[in-house]
Design a binder for these strands. Structure first.
Lengths: 109, 109
DNA sequence: CTCTCGTGCTACAGTTTTTGTAGCACGACG
DNA sequence: CGTCGTGCTACAAAAACTGTAGCACGAGAG
């Protein structure tokens, strides 16, 4: 499959490697943010993570997890998968999205 | 193409329609966040937006823009495409990602 | 009116990504 | 040895995305 984007190298829709563009490419891949989200509470095994994501196929989970690991967002140790320090900081930003989503859901159509 | 996820209706990997899950599905589609990002400064025409995203194909741009419009994040008027009030709030959350990305790019490997 | 220009957008075929199911190889335990 | 749970791979089918071409429309010029 495709290459993991890294800051300083071209990503989808840009050749400059601007960090935000690289990040948007990385997080814009299916399940990427969800995986980070599901690791918020505690480390999970591969299969727990798979179940937490509603039965995502192992193929793509493995791909995403490998990318996030290369990006230093997720780590793997004996106990399974967990967020790195960077990953935890990123999760905090996703919490902002959570708040936004809650308000968004309440908007009157 | 696929259905636009809405809060309260099932999204990828969930049947509950939890707002954050719905949002992660919506934003996890290719180019979705990038489109929001590129509208930060001023409204853009379809073709300006296309160029801003590095030549994204019109097919998918149109799909994304329609989804974001249904989600009340992007609006379309005579002057082109722009962010709604909701969209502007969401953009602020993406700015958090920007800061994170800048620090991330500077980390020593 | 006609010609040109830029617009939003669609058609369509080709490619890449994602999905779903099956199951392998390994280590721990009995 | 047999069984269990683990991380993960194989592979074919389906869905998403890409790239190019070009249509239909409205505004402005002649």
């Amino acid at each position: 499959m495709a290459r993991t984007p890294k800051p300083g190298t071209p990503a989808r829709g840009t050749t400059t490697g601007r960090p935000i563009m690289v990040l948007l490419d990385l997080l814009g891949r299916r399940w990427a943010m969800r995986v980070i989200w599901e690791l918020h509470k505690k480390p999970l095994t591969f299969r727990e993570l798979q179940a937490a994501c509603g039965g995502i196929s192992p193929t793509i989970l493995n791909t995403r997890v490998a990318e996030l690991r290369e990006a230093d967002i997720v780590a793997q140790d004996g106990a399974g998968y967990s967020l790195t320090a960077e990953g935890q900081r990123l999760l905090k930003e996703l919490l902002g999205l959570h708040e936004w989503a809650e308000r968004w859901a309440k908007r009157k159509t």
